[in-house]
Design a protein around this nucleic acid. Sequence first.
DNA 1: ATCCAGTCTGAAACTTGTTCTAGATTAGCG
DNA 2: CGCTAATCTAGAACAAGTTTCAGACTGGAT
Lengths: 203, 203
Amino acid sequence: MTAEARPASPPLTERQEARRRRILHASAQLAGRGGFEAVQMREVAEEAGVALGTLYRYFPSKIHLLVATMQDQLQHMHTTLHKRPPAGQDPAQRVADTLMRAFRALQREPHLADAMVRALTFADRSVSPEVDTVSRITTAIILDAMGLEHPTPEQLSAVRVIEHTWHSALITWLSGRASIAQVKIDIDTVCRLIDVTKPSDTA
Amino acid sequence: MTAEARPASPPLTERQEARRRRILHASAQLAGRGGFEAVQMREVAEEAGVALGTLYRYFPSKIHLLVATMQDQLQHMHTTLHKRPPAGQDPAQRVADTLMRAFRALQREPHLADAMVRALTFADRSVSPEVDTVSRITTAIILDAMGLEHPTPEQLSAVRVIEHTWHSALITWLSGRASIAQVKIDIDTVCRLIDVTKPSDTA
DNA sequence: ATCCAGTCTGAAACTTGTTCTAGATTAGCG
DNA sequence: CGCTAATCTAGAACAAGTTTCAGACTGGAT
């Protein structure tokens, strides 16, 4: 059921798969220190033991690379969450818990978070498919936390709003304009929409 | 009551004020065709009839320039809104109306919107004060629409969530991942938080 | 084993944001 | 008016993302 990232186009050989991993690893590594600006394509190439041209063949831009990095990290988080699902009673609680857990994970690597989130929101149309994949994984994580199989259109809208808030709140935190506490409050606030859009509640 | 933008540091002379305006005008002009990438510092300088170094003295980076451009445009919108306030009955309605009006204005200049919004969300810490100014104006616009003088902390959180949604929804629209209709739905959805956080309602 | 097409490498070149410098201009002041 | 400090200009120079290219390498088909 998990949205798989690999575009089936040309099935990569083992060496190619390894190269791809090395590149993503180097990207995350460099992002981990220094954030967005520290991910310099020449350095990524060198650290991954790959020519610059090759790096660009695998990821056609720095933004593509960082969005792919985020895809990768999100996938990890998704499987981790499957192992230890959130424990709250009601759906809103569980979603808020899940997002706060993710938030704490990001706080441990603020530079990496910076690089990934900035890339994600800066991405233009040429990166839409990749950004969409990230969005689908995020949506899946939230729906999992809600415990919903067949959300109504209304609920989907609420989930989108939660995602919007999530991304934008991260940005304000990363740029030092909001405190951790404020992010928490805003997440709790937006999660109220989950109660408001319960199907029985259709005003 | 309106948040004024000009940092009082050195009061600009008339010629300087004129230069600043020419620069902002050139920026908006170039952004209007081509969007973010079309705003090239050398071109802005040339179009504004100013040396590159001078441009950088007025706006220390492309991001600063575009955020200032957004400030400028927002200010216009804010005064326009003062002349014709939204007409809805309840606060949520009025906020949604206001945002949709702003959205329609942006639709008329999608490239300009692209440049401004991308700059805004991409801005790093060095631009925090300027981004904060934009945020304050936006907050003021929303609170005006709500008709609130003294919002509770809860309501302020709701306003922040609305702002988050607004920015992020714009981004998804600009990058072609969401339709205009979807943006409208999500704005309506998030505006429900205004009802949910009415002081009488504090669960 | 050989050959072909596709891939990878290394290095240079190009683009655009940003910085720097030396000299011209301007603004304010005695 | 004449001086001085700040500002502005033109243009070179630098940094990092991106493109390009010639040649070496690899993997698969015959």
